[in-house]
Design a binder for these strands. Structure first.
Lengths: 183, 183
DNA sequence: CTCTGATGAGACGTTGACGTCTCATTCGGG
DNA sequence: CCCGAATGAGACGTCAACGTCTCATCAGAG
């Protein structure tokens, strides 16, 4: 039975989320395996990061599926989406910043799919009249990623309680800081 | 006449904002000086990053001063603050993610000052009844940084127009994605 | 002009992480 | 019990970036 590749990826994600410059040696030790075995599974650091990218995309698409974005009001769909994203928030934060490093190269096609589905949700909310139309879906998508990353870091450094993660993000994203006059 | 240290810092900031892993050699060439001269001014990469941190803190504090956070409504103060932050957004993005790398070490005391002033603004808005009280000032502060970083990246990759930077951030931060029923 | 100090170009050694390799050990199936 | 495949430990060479150093050049002050 081969070593649990899934487990290696999980622990690598957990470690690289906290310290994105961690060594292959540290990654291996975090997974409880030797560096040699780590290299037997992933040809190199690039391969590992790419595998993590695939994992992140899978998690995001699973979250998108689980959130059933087409059902109910757009705002409830956003709430469900953020809830589903929470588990992958650290991984998203890692990959989101990691992607800034690739200047020219085109990014993994999977992200385009994820982006498109998230943006479609915001567009649906705009067309139904729930969301304001002066904030573009592309920006709302970007902001969602950014807030997830900020939230994950804030939680990991104790500036925000873990149990508030979802609430803080959803409420800020949907309602903003201003008090509502009406509802 | 010594080389314009300010200019070196500016170009280093511009480069590292786009690619945070840029080489000392690239930093030097971007500034139009030789690697030797770069090392004569900054003992090493650490020193350079720390100098950039100081620069970022200065820019933030200058922005905080210019925004006159105590005057007028809190929401207008936030608008002014984001406007003043725009020029430093790339640098903020770089330093914000860079800070995630220092796990245990305490961060530069300057950030604590900046954080405190930003958080105080949000707290003022809460006490005046403008802002909702279920989002903590610490989280709003964090979210502001995160949105600035997301905005800077989105602009640099063409997903958001540069002229919309300020508007997108302020409107999302203050008002959120939902349409207002009342005003 | 001359002297001084700063600069650019580049060589040099060091370091840390990487990727490969070997070999002993271990674990599980037959 | 025995065998083979997978693992762990670690040695080894490679490489890129770093930091230091030297030296020729250049510009400006006196």
């Amino acid at each position: 039975m081969p070593i649990d590749r899934e487990h290696v990826l999980r622990s690598a994600a957990a470690l690289l989320t906290r310290r994105s410059t961690a060594t292959m040696d540290e990654v291996a030790r975090a997974a409880g395996i030797s560096r040699a075995t780590l290299h037997r599974q992933f040809a190199g650091r690039d391969a590992l990061v790419r595998a993590l990218e695939e994992l992140g995309i899978q998690e995001c698409e699973a979250a998108l599926d689980a959130a059933r974005l087409d059902e109910g009001t757009a705002r409830d769909a956003v709430r469900r989406l953020v809830r589903e994203f929470e588990g992958a928030a650290g991984l998203i934060a890692f990959l989101y910043t990691e992607n800034q490093l690739f200047e020219g190269e085109e990014q993994n096609a999977g992200w385009a799919r994820v982006d498109a589905r998230v943006a479609a949700l915001f567009r649906r909310g705009q067309e139904s009249g729930e969301f304001r139309i002066d904030l573009t879906p592309a920006w709302l998508t970007e902001a969602l990623y950014g807030l997830c990353a900020s939230g994950a870091w804030a939680v990991s450094e104790g500036r925000v309680a873990a149990k508030d993660f979802q609430y803080m993000i959803v409420e800020l994203l949907l309602g903003g800081a201003l008090r509502r006059e009406g509802s």
